[in-house]
Simulated assay, not measured.
Amino acid sequence: MPDTTGAAGLTVGQVAARLDVTVRALHHWDEIGLVRPSLRTAGGYRLYTAADLERLHRVVVYREIGLGLDRIRAVLDDPATDVPAALRAQRAQVADRVERLQRLGAGLDRMIEAHERGLPLTVEEQAGIFGPDWDPEGPAKARARYGDTAQWRQYAERAASRTPEEWRAVTAATAALDGDLASAMEAGVAPGTPEADALVERHRAVFAAYFPLTREMQVCLARTYESDPGFAAHYDTIRPGLASWFRRAVDASARAHGIDPATATWR
């Protein structure tokens, strides 16, 4: 309860300081008739009495627990208002907000983890999804290499909200594409043909699980698949020479869209 000793005749500014509210709020409550100063000076200035201050204190308490001003007026002035019921209803709303905030907090934790670690999954989940040969340090290495890029931020945003089941779907789509690329190469599909171009487009669609991939970026990525020992070994395990075949297929598709592979940049 507020200390109302000597409270009679307090000015708007004094009341605002005592109750830690704004002068603007006090003026508004006065205008709508929620709490009006009972006294005025000879010069017309508003003055609050001890009773006014007590009512203001109750308004502040109810406002802090989330009641709207109309509801506060009913609680204070309407004898028919069931105050415990009103407070229980407000408590339920607060509980809903708390639950939403907890979900938001969990989402923020996952987003932070995705930005900092690259993959918000446990080591066990990673092994179960990506296979026993998966390097759990891979995402951290990628973070060290690409963490300052826009694409890493896009990837982290996707990774933060993705469930293990969704990661399994991404992994399955990637594996299916790799298998179809190998089958096309074995069947003698030439880069630049409609079948090869369709696989190139499918690669962009599958890769979009990580971040949007432009055609120029795809050219750069295919070049990395061929030149980077780790990527090249992965594709050569699927089918010897697959990385080079895919790079040629991407280059041919890029040319068909007016892009010179020799001058393509990561953009």
Rank of each mutant, 00 (worst) to 15 (best):
P2T: 00
G6P: 03
A7C: 11
G13D: 09
Q14E: 15
Q14N: 08
V15L: 10
V15M: 04
A17P: 05
R18F: 07
V21K: 13
L26M: 12
H28A: 05
H28Q: 05
E31I: 03
I32L: 06
G33R: 10
V35P: 00
P37R: 04
S38Q: 14
R40M: 06
R40W: 07
A42M: 08
A42F: 12
Y45M: 11
R46Y: 04
R46D: 08
T49P: 02
A50K: 00
A51L: 08
D52G: 03
L53E: 01
R55G: 02
R55L: 13
L56C: 01
H57T: 09
V61S: 15
V61M: 14
Y62T: 01
L67H: 00
G68M: 03
G68R: 12
L69Q: 04
D70S: 14
R73I: 09
A74L: 14
V75I: 11
D78P: 04
D82K: 11
V83P: 01
P84W: 06
R91S: 12
Q93A: 04
V94G: 05
A95C: 13
A95Q: 15
R97K: 12
R100V: 05
R103I: 06
L104A: 14
G105H: 14
A114T: 05
E116A: 15
L119M: 15
T122P: 01
V123S: 13
E124F: 05
E125I: 06
E125S: 10
Q126Y: 11
Q126G: 15
Q126H: 11
G128P: 03
I129W: 07
I129E: 04
G131K: 07
G131M: 03
D133V: 01
E137W: 09
G138C: 09
K141N: 12
A144N: 05
R145S: 10
R145Y: 11
Y146W: 13
Y146D: 03
G147P: 02
T149A: 08
Q154E: 15
E157C: 13
R158M: 12
A160G: 10
T163G: 07
T163D: 09
P164G: 10
E165V: 15
E165D: 12
E165L: 15
V170N: 07
A175Y: 05
D178T: 09
G179K: 06
G179L: 14
S183R: 15
E186M: 08
E186Q: 13
E186H: 09
E186V: 15
A187V: 03
A187E: 11
G188C: 13
P191V: 02
P194I: 06
L199C: 09
R204G: 12
F207V: 00
A208R: 04
A209I: 03
F211H: 02
F211W: 03
P212R: 06
T214G: 09
E216P: 00
V219D: 00
A222E: 04
S227F: 12
P229F: 01
A232P: 02
A233H: 04
H234P: 02
H234M: 10
T237C: 14
I238R: 06
P240I: 11
A243M: 05
R248M: 10
V250F: 00
V250C: 02
A252T: 06
A252R: 01
A254R: 02
A262H: 12
A262P: 09
T265S: 07
W266M: 05
